[in-house]
Design a protein around this nucleic acid. Structure first.
Lengths: 143, 143
DNA sequence: CTGTTTGCAAATTTTTTGCAACCTA
DNA sequence: TAGGTTGCAAAAAATTTGCAAACAG
């Protein structure tokens, strides 16, 4: 149990190892990233930190995300004017986005392995990572 | 033959139909989008138009892309600070990017249909589009 | 002619950077 | 105490918008 706590501790250790310091703001930002299931935006994270530390600046949020990104512990989903972050599963995986309510979920796709296999066989590429985003309308928003 | 010309004509007709006007700048922007195999950025397109019309502004490029996007004749690939455009195949399709030589190819993936099917069955979403980018190293760059 | 488009500049939006004061280790 | 971090403001970078002059139909 405490998988999220363990992951948080692990990242904190990594931070210390690299000579980074653990500030109260960073702790909240890190926890928000690790606990969030819904791929928060910078503004989302900013809002959450502000609850506990009202003087926190956006710059600090950006800087902290940047540090955690260097550790490979958060996945950045690039969108033109609104990046989202996944600190829960910081490795490439498929996303399913509802274009109406903007929710993002992680579907389980057993067919992904065969697809990647086909890609490798057909092209001879060595695959390093991927970005698989599906856009649609979730069951709730279909009404 | 003349597939690209045909597509260009078709889009021009669509533009006229909707009450848009065909200006020389728009013609060059449109041709660049339709002919490009390399998913050009706004700056790429801007540079090409400038060759023929040195007074063209970036705003015009953005506005024209926006209009063509409304017609559904260009695909926008969102990156945080550098969108790319595909006016050659303006519908969602997988991309395979070599991280070394930056080449982009369009792989044929017969496994994509079953994967989408699995997604629909599992989640109940109505899928509207997708973005599938694979990052890897092409055969040539593996040496 | 009429109304759309252009091109310039200013405004927006997201993210980055510089730096003095501050705080963690 | 030393040096990384914060928070403010200014700077970048990409895109959008307002508007008068230009131009397509």
């Amino acid at each position: 149990m405490g998988e999220i706590q363990n992951r948080t501790e692990m990242i904190l250790d990594k931070l210390k190892e690299k000579g980074h310091r653990i500030t109260p703001q960073r702790l909240v930002i890190l926890r928000t990233l690790v606990e969030s299931q819904n791929h928060p935006s910078v503004e989302d994270i900013f809002a959450k930190v502000r609850v506990h530390f009202p003087t926190t600046s956006l710059a600090t949020v950006y800087k902290t995300i940047s540090v955690i990104k260097e550790l490979g512990e958060v996945l950045e989903l690039e969108f033109s004017g609104h990046n989202r972050y996944d600190g829960h599963k910081p490795y490439p995986h498929p996303h399913l986005l509802c274009v109406k309510c903007k929710k993002i979920v992680d579907p389980e796709l057993s067919s992904l392995a065969p697809l990647t296999q086909e890609l490798v066989s057909d092209t001879g590429y060595r695959i390093l990572s991927h970005r698989l985003d599906f856009y649609g309308i979730c069951p709730k928003c279909q009404n």
